[in-house]
Design a protein around this nucleic acid. Structure first.
Lengths: 251, 251
DNA sequence: CGTGAGCTTGACTTGTTTCAACCAACGTGG
DNA sequence: CCACGTTGGTTGAAACAAGTCAAGCTCACG
């Protein structure tokens, strides 16, 4: 792994193209840690954070369940998904990762990944050295607070996912999924006139909502016919966000 | 809240009747923190952990979703459940808490509970002062490691729950639930000849597995008729654990 | 040009929910 | 002591949601 710091001299070459949930988090951990990495360069490299950049093809796995990871991966560009699987092949997607997402805060402390991480689109990933991050955390107590917030957020989303899967109908789940993704993207400024990137395949939607591909596809078709959404190529337009919210139902 | 330490002079008066998952955790956080509370007494009370004991009737809530808690509750006796709810009343139980369980490691850092906590049986709860726990964590770094383990464990269980709800059939979910509870109880030494306390009502099982009460009841009846389990009063016997495991299916 | 991944649609089957009725156990207050 | 409401469990029939199977289609890619 290189011991060179993140270079951001070229303005078109920011390591992270967008930042998830910046409004929700007190601040963006991913950006903060990159800044620290860059600052480390200035004081002689002693506090630099080693990293490695990787490009991963769509549909390839970054890591498998229970695999030990050398570093802590951050999504710089593209979409990824975390999933767990049963031995007979049934899978459940736990979360979608957007640019600026740390895969999981746990990976900073525990090198063993509890879920597989798979590229949805072509992906750019920057993997930071775990020990260097830990050292940075000790030097910057506010970073530790951010991590704590991210962890809380992860737990809250896990609870949300459980009640979605356990107690909501298929229609509600899919409406909910689309709305949540749209909100995350909107917060990053990645939504324009209700149109957003939507690289998910139907099997991603099915695996995220606990449905079969066929059923998920049918419901999407219903949404399209009902004028709620418009899908073309790899982008999705929220034609009737309020209608979707009504369908997504009870908070 | 009393500033008196936990008294355990009376041998029949241990604050915690049993300790969950002691084999799985490196050590039991709950016991450790009680020991520290007691030790605090000896050095003049400066390091004592303030606490309050409470008895809660079955079916009563300890706290509601998004409620702010003064202290950090530990289950000393009885069973409890954590749950989230939709506004129309649909509920999902996230976990059952057995004696020796901390409700959630997050409550040490974040005073706002993300889920409701409800007594399944009559319950004895000891609530420790949050600031005192935090101070103890700083004095005892190994406690911090335990918390980290507990958090990891919570995340892993959340992932497990998600795939259970999303991808398993009703029968698998119920078999799985019974097996997991039996394993936790066995680890505490609360299982004798395959017989364990089983105070759950059918609506608990339904809410934990994302099913209706009627369907959960039917499946339990099937299990009974199939000679897999025997239920009498408030206890359950694993008549055919291997059969159950076969039904619970793929890991 | 062939191949594989992905989407759509329809007919059919299965799993699960809903509704409803009934019964047993239990605690409470008259 | 009994009447009564509440809580919990059981069962059956009917309605519905979701899964399975199958076929045909487009599109991108080598």
């Amino acid at each position: 792994m290189n011991r060179k710091p993140a270079t951001a001299s070229n303005p078109g070459d920011r390591p992270v193209e967008a930042c998830r949930d910046c409004a929700a988090y007190k601040s963006c951990f991913c950006h903060a840690i990159m800044c620290i990495a860059e600052a480390g360069e200035n004081d002689g490299g002693a506090a630099a954070i080693a990293y490695q950049d990787q490009t991963i093809a769509a549909r390839r796995a970054i890591c498998r369940e229970n695999e030990t990871l050398d570093g802590v991966p951050f999504i710089c560009k593209g979409w990824a998904a975390t999933a767990v699987a049963l031995s007979d092949g049934r899978r459940q997607i736990l979360s979608f990762l957007l640019p600026g997402d740390i895969v999981s805060a746990i990976l900073i402390f525990d090198p063993v990944s509890r879920c597989s991480i798979e590229a949805v689109t072509e992906l750019q990933v920057r993997t930071l050295a775990r020990d260097d991050i830990k050292a940075a955390l000790l030097r910057h107590p506010d970073l530790m607070d951010m991590i704590s917030d991210i962890r809380d957020h992860e737990v809250a989303r896990a609870a949300q996912l459980s009640i979605d899967l356990g107690r909501r109908t298929a229609i509600e789940r899919i409406a909910q999924l689309i709305l949540q993704l749209s909100e995350r993207l909107a917060r990053c400024g990645l939504m324009h006139d209700g149109v957003m990137d939507f690289p998910l395949r139907q099997h991603h939607i099915a695996d995220a909502t606990g449905l079969t591909v066929v059923h998920a596809g049918n419901i999407l078709a219903d949404f399209r016919r009902g004028g709620l959404i418009e899908i073309s190529g790899r982008s999705l337009k929220l034609a009737d966000p309020d209608g979707l919210r009504r369908i997504a139902g009870a908070l």
